[in-house]
Every structure is written in structure tokens, then in C-alpha cells.
Design a protein around this nucleic acid. Structure first.
Length: 281
DNA sequence: CTCCAGGCAGCCA
DNA sequence: TGGCTGCATGGA
């Protein structure tokens, strides 16, 4: 065993809650084994655990941990800047310290293409199969996320063998876009929200919701508000007229109007607390 | 067995 | 632009 390193959480790194951050459904590959979270950042097999205001980790550098979990971000200021409404306050209390991690753009894009029209356990299952089938085995049982090139060159039937169903051609098509245009990621990263969104919408399998997930989780455009069935339900029942019809943009715009320029962060807290907030029967 | 899920593309008006 | 529909699949 190589040694472990320690990060003392202080200043902007507070608040931080590792459990809430990794279990809220924004990432699909992390696994909790005992008190350790095990995951892969790039080509590093990383293990992390939190003891109060101490983060203990192995397999990578403090810089990578800090960057991945966005520990420089002044989260306290963002949370304090939200309006004082009961619903959002309930969600923040529930998931206090949840941070939106900096996902690699390609992994995030491919993951959320797989995530459409599926539930989280099913998404994790399929992504695991994809990594085992197309990733590179760094250690025993630990695989990298498949490269765009690998998926772009793979027959659809091989991709489908990972149980992704009709999404096979979306995965392959978007992989071809990333693979054939290495500058795509950096160009999108340099664009403002609307323009970046329009670029992402050109990718097969990427619609409004998936684009907003990529913009929020990979590019940290905090005005992006992904509206899935849960957010749709929560916004209608608590902030709009339940039973009425609203478009995707109406829901997202309502969230931006109420929660402000960091509405995407508010969205993620509402999503994390969806069980308590969505009164489904 | 039935219903549901971090939606999308393709179609039609 | 907006509304409708089919869709692969595993989980609950």
C-alpha cells in the first residue's frame, strides 16, 4: 500500500460533504467500500474518505483532489445567496456540503447519453459494463472510462452488448465527434452558456436535458438547470401551478428567476433531496 | 406482472 | 415552435 495524504478542509473548502457529493447521482462510477470511496479520476485509481474536516486520500495529488471536488469554490457564499424559501432550505439542510464535481467532458457526455430514460442503478450498471468492455484495466478490476476513439471504432452490436439498447448509435456517433475533433472540448469550454449549449445539441443523443447536465457538471455553467422528471415534479408542485403544462425552458427559466445565477447548484440540491421533496402519492 | 426512470429523435401540424 | 410517439432495459 502506498501512503495516504491528508487535506485539512478550511476556508473555501468548507462546507464539503463527500458522501452527499458522491452519492447524489451526478457521478456514476464511485463506489463506497466500508468508509472509503473508490473511484477513478483520469487514469488514477483514487480512494477518499472524510473524517469531519479532514480528507484522507490515496492514488493522486492534492491538486487533483482539490480540482475534482472544486474545493476552491466559495460554496458557502453560493448557498447563502439563495432566497430564503422553505423548500430549497430543506434541500440544503439535507445535502449540506454537496459540491458539483468537475467531470471530464467526454465521460460526462457519454454517461448522460446512457442516462436518458433510465434510473440511476441501471445507469451505473451499463456504465460499468462499458468500462469493463472498452476501458483499460489499470489494476485488477479497475478500468478507465472508454476513450472516444475506442467507442467510435467499435461495432454497434459490441456497444449494445453493454445493455445500452437504442443508445448504441448515439454513443458511437458522439464518440466519433469527440474522436475526430480533438479541439471540440476546449472550444466548447471557451463559449458562454447559450453558445456552448448549441454546440452540444449537435451531438447525437444530446438534447436539452443532457446538454444542461454536461454544461453544469463538466463545464460548470451554474446557470444550467437540467430538468428531469424529478425537477419537473418538484418545480411544479412547489414553485408553479401543479397540474399545468410547462415547457422545459419555462421550468428552467423559473428556476433561474427564483434561484439566480447559480440556479444549477440549487437544482442539484433539490435533486439530491428529491425523495423528501417530491410528493409522489 | 406492472410501472417507472437524470429524454431523445423523428414526425406532423 | 409545439405536441405526439416509439423506444431497450433493469429496478422497484
Amino acid at each position: 500500500m502506498t501512503g495516504h495524504s491528508v487535506i485539512l478542509l478550511e476556508g473555501n473548502a468548507l462546507p464539503f460533504n463527500l458522501d452527499r457529493t458522491l452519492s447524489c447521482g451526478q457521478v456514476f462510477r464511485w463506489e463506497k467500500r466500508g468508509r472509503w470511496w473508490c473511484g477513478i479520476i483520469g487514469r488514477d485509481v483514487v480512494r477518499v474518505c472524510q473524517e469531519n474536516n479532514t480528507l484522507i486520500f490515496s492514488g493522486t495529488t492534492e491538486e487533483e483532489i482539490s480540482g475534482y471536488f472544486d474545493l476552491e469554490l466559495d460554496l458557502e457564499e453560493i448557498l447563502a445567496g439563495f432566497p430564503d424559501d422553505l423548500i430549497l432550505r430543506t434541500a440544503i439542510d439535507f445535502a449540506y456540503g454537496l459540491r458539483i464535481v468537475r467531470q471530464p467532458a467526454w465521460e460526462c457526455t457519454a454517461s448522460y447519453i446512457v442516462a436518458t430514460f433510465a434510473n440511476i442503478p441501471g445507469i451505473r450498471f451499463r456504465i460499468k459494463l462499458l468500462c469493463e468492455r472498452f476501458g483499460y484495466e489499470i489494476e485488477s478490476g479497475e478500468y478507465t472510462f472508454p476513450s472516444p476513439h475506442t467507442l467510435a471504432e467499435s461495432p454497434l452490436c459490441d456497444i449494445r452488448s453493454c445493455r445500452v439498447g437504442y443508445r448504441d448509435r448515439y454513443l458511437c456517433g458522439t464518440a466519433q465527434m469527440f474522436s475526430s475533433d480533438p479541439g471540440f472540448r476546449d472550444r466548447v469550454a471557451a463559449l458562454p452558456y447559450k453558445e456552448a449549449r448549441n454546440e452540444l445539441l449537435r451531438l447525437p443523443g444530446v438534447g436539452r436535458k443532457v446538454a444542461d447536465c454536461i454544461l453544469l457538471f463538466a463545464f460548470h455553467h451554474f446557470q444550467a438547470v437540467p430538468v428531469d422528471v424529478w425537477i419537473d415534479r418538484i418545480m411544479k408542485s412547489h414553485y408553479l401551478n401543479e397540474g399545468e403544462k410547462y415547457s422545459y425552458d419555462q421550468i428552467a427559466d423559473t428556476a433561474r428567476t427564483i434561484f439566480g445565477s447559480h440556479a444549477g447548484y440549487a437544482q442539484e440540491y433539490l435533486f439530491a433531496a428529491r425523495d423528501a421533496l417530491s410528493k409522489k402519492k
